[in-house]
Structures are given as C-alpha cells and as structure tokens.
Design a protein around this nucleic acid. Structure first.
Lengths: 145, 145
DNA sequence: TTCCATGCAAACTTTTTGCAACGCC
DNA sequence: GGCGTTGCAAAAAGTTTGCATGGAA
C-alpha cells in the first residue's frame, strides 16, 4: 500500500540461482515489456516448478540492483523492461501493450518543475498513449463488447 | 485485465442521484488527488450507507462523461482528479501522494513520436516523481520500516 | 411504471508474505 | 554449515460484479 523505496537497501548478499538467471535472460530476450505473469509463463517453459512468488521476488531484486527496470506505467499491471536505462514508452489504450519509443528527447523539465513545487523533484516519466498496430481498425474489422 | 475503453460508450441515460452529486462535490473540493477509498471515506461522512462499489461505479461513469479525470499515474492505486483537463502531476515516491504541478509546458512531442512508431499516437502523460514536503527529512527525523 | 442506480457481499485479479525445505557460497 | 532462496499456499489489497431492492423521471 505504502510505497517502500529501499526494500533491498542493504542488498546484503545475493546468490546466483538458476531462477534468477533465467528470469533475467528471458526478460532481456523480449522487446515487449512483459507483466510479471507473462515472464512467469516464459520462465516456466524452462523451469517448470518455478513459482510466481519467486518471479516477483526476483523482479523486485533485479530492479533494486538496477539490472532491470520496473516500468512506471499507468494501468493496473506492473511491467518490466530488460533495459534499465530510462526511456519513453507508448501504451496501447486498447490492449495495454507497451512498446519503446525509438526516439529520445532531452527535455529535462525537472528544473522548471522544481521551481514550481515544494516537492524535491527526482525524476520524470514521459509516457505516450495510442493504439497499437494490432488494435487498429485496419479496414473495418472491430470487435466491441 | 484487458483495458476497456468504452464501458459507458452509449452512456444511455443517467439519473441524478444524491450519491453521484456528493461524490462529484467532494472530489472537486479537494486539491489532493484522492484514491477511490479516500473519496469513499469523505462521502461516507455525508451519506453513511453508501457503498464502496457505488463510489467506484460513479467514478467510472463520471470519468467516462469527462466530468472528472481518472489519473494515469504510475503506482498501484487509481487516483481521481476533479479537474478533467490533462495537466502534469508529481508523485511522492515515499508516501504515494499526488499533487498538481502548477506550471505548464506546451511540449507536444506527439508528432515526433508519431513519426517514430507504428502506434496511432493519441496522448502523452508527463509525470514527475520526488519527495513531498511531509516526507522530506526536515532536520533528521525519519521513520523507517 | 420503468429501468437506472444502490447496498451488500462475494468474486476476481494482482502482488505480497509466512514457512519449512533447499542449495549456493 | 550458514543463510539467502525457493515452492507452496494463504493472505492482502484493490477493484469489479451479481442480485434483489430502491428511487429518479
């Protein structure tokens, strides 16, 4: 409920487990930005007895270590990105898919914002919304609820 | 699970109920950007028997009608804004509080993004992150988990 | 009178957590 | 062998939904 920044603050000691390795590999192998459950399913193909809890725990740890990125994307489900560097994303309003935006801006508005708020400004998230190719009404075909 | 854009597409007919009125009033009365539950608690003071389900249903309806805004904010809980016009927000990484950023930019990057993606670009969300005044380590006082 | 909206409670979805067994270092 | 990790299952947390009743129009 309450966001907790440093769950792995001391990052004590981490062991190299097959689970963690495979999760990282699978995440880096895809260009989409999968949900925890999607990653779980991919990893399950290689480690059948892995549990969803382990996937969550490792995604947590890996992002705390800066090896992956927990996407700060609007919407209900968390998504993860094998590329830990911050970059803009675009999300499909229809199906929720998330893709990278292959164009980067250097708009750093944080200074302007810092002057206008009493928060200590730390970062900015730029997200675009739209309709992905798969959801676009090609010629006419649509399925409605 | 799958985002559904037009749950209230036909917006058939809407009756004016006290519940809906009060929810809208309360939301417009606050400058913070409350979660559904926070709104529920405020409204409860005036309509004790209201249910959380009703609050959710009305927030849904009101945002579909464009009377309020369902905030596309990263993080676990939905938040709502009595101001339906899109504008930037800043979120506290510590406590999750969301505030308006009283400074607006006209950075419309959608054209550039449209050229770089095969999505149909519809909108952009600019969100800042930081630490709110209440969570800042004034002199030294902090409470950790 | 019609049928949209409500209250209540149960169902769902997503994420977190407790615990004993396991296995890396 | 110590202790970080895992699998399993139960618990949390947030949101949605079914249904009979209630109340605008």
């Amino acid at each position: 409920m309450v966001p907790n920044m440093q769950k792995h603050a001391g990052l004590a000691q981490t062991r190299t487990t097959r689970q963690r390795q495979v999760i990282l590999e699978e995440l880096r192998q895809v260009t989409c930005h999968p949900t925890a459950d999607a990653i779980y399913q991919r990893v399950q193909a290689r480690i059948p007895r892995i549990s969803l809890g382990t996937v969550y725990r490792n995604l947590d740890l890996l992002s705390a270590q800066g090896q992956i990125q927990r996407l700060e994307i609007a919407g209900s489900q968390m998504r993860f990105d094998g590329n830990a560097a911050p970059h803009p994303h675009i999300r499909c309003l229809e199906c929720g898919a998330v893709a990278d935006v292959p164009c980067h801006f250097d708009v750093l508005l944080t200074d302007a914002v810092q002057a206008a708020t009493d928060f200590a400004v730390l970062g900015q998230i730029i997200e675009f919304t739209g309709i992905c190719p798969a959801c676009q009404p090609e010629t006419c075909l649509r399925q409605e609820a």
